[in-house]
Simulated scan of single mutants.
Amino acid sequence: MILIIPDVLTPDEQSQLRLLASQSNFVDGKETAGFRAKLVKNNEQVAKDASNKKQLQEIVVGALLRSKEFRRGAIPLRIRPPLISRYRPGMTYGVHVDDALMGSSLARDRTDVSCTVFLNDAKEYEGGELVVHSPYGIQEIKLPARYAVIYPSGTLHEVAEVTKGERLVAVTWIQSYVRDERHRQFLYDALQIRDKLHSIDPKMVEADTACHLYTNLLRLWSEN
Rank of each mutant, 00 (worst) to 15 (best):
Y93L: 07
K48E: 07
G73N: 09
E58R: 13
D98E: 14
G94K: 03
L83T: 12
R88C: 04
S85V: 11
A100N: 07
P76M: 15
R71C: 14
Q57Y: 03
L77H: 12
D112H: 11
V60M: 04
K54Q: 13
R66F: 11
D109F: 06
V95H: 13
F70C: 04
P82T: 02
G73I: 10
L65T: 03
T92S: 07
R78S: 08
G94I: 03
L101T: 10
V97P: 00
A50W: 02
P81Y: 05
R88G: 06
R66H: 08
Y93S: 02
K53D: 01
R88P: 04
I75W: 11
L56A: 01
G103N: 03
V95S: 15
A74N: 11
L77C: 10
K54H: 14
T116K: 10
L119C: 09
L65N: 13
D112Q: 05
L64N: 03
S85C: 07
G62I: 06
V61E: 12
D49W: 05
D109L: 06
P76C: 12
Q45L: 15
S85H: 00
A63N: 02
I79Q: 08
V117A: 09
R71W: 04
L83Y: 10
G103I: 03
V95Y: 10
G62L: 09
R86F: 06
V97Y: 02
S114H: 13
V46K: 00
N42T: 06
Y93T: 01
L64G: 03
S67D: 02
P82E: 01
L106V: 14
S85I: 07
N43A: 09
L101Y: 14
R71A: 13
V117E: 11
K53T: 03
G94N: 01
L83F: 10
N42I: 09
V60Y: 06
F70I: 01
I79F: 10
E69F: 05
F118G: 02
L56K: 05
E58L: 09
S67C: 06
L64S: 03
L65M: 12
A74K: 02
S114G: 15
A100V: 11
H96R: 00
I84L: 06
R108Q: 14
Q45W: 02
K48D: 11
P82W: 00
S105N: 14
I84S: 01
S104Q: 13
N52T: 11
R78L: 08
V117C: 07
L119M: 08
E44T: 12
N120G: 01
R71H: 06
K68R: 13
A50Q: 08
T116A: 07
V97I: 15
E58K: 15
D109A: 04
L65C: 08
V117D: 05
L101K: 09
T116H: 10
A74Q: 07
V60K: 08
V60Q: 07
A107K: 14
V113A: 12
P89Y: 08
V95P: 04
Q55P: 04
A107F: 11
V117H: 04
R71E: 14
